[in-house]
Design a binder for these strands. Sequence first.
DNA 1: TTAGTGACCAACT
DNA 2: AAGTTGGCCACTA
Length: 119
Amino acid sequence: MKHQPQTLNFFQQVYTVVRQIPEGRVSTYGAIGRYLGAPQSARMVGWAMNAAHQDPSIPAQRVVNRSGLLTGKHHFPGSQLMQQLLENEGVKVLNDQVQNFKEILWYPSEHLPLWENPL
DNA sequence: TTAGTGACCAACT
DNA sequence: AAGTTGGCCACTA
């Protein structure tokens, strides 16, 4: 039986954080990466999402880029599935842009006010 | 093995 | 103000 490389742990951590995102809220690649101690590895978080596609328990639709843009929608089956999933949770999306983005944005360290997060 | 790429972000010019 | 470049980690060719 093979042992999983430690580096793969990073992906698992990303998945764990993503699963913590409540319904009706969204988070960003950068925020997650920062929380995991890899502030400049936002791309890795997106890559983790790509690999997470095999795990339906991961709400990848709740992860958007720092602008609130659904950059990853193109990777979902269908054309507007990501947007539809978000709207189904009460998140309004217009033209691939999350409305009230700052208000529904959720950080792993949620005890901090959103507007004071530098990022 | 080296090199290139990716659902991004921030710094620098 | 806008365009370019570097960087991070894992995966594929």
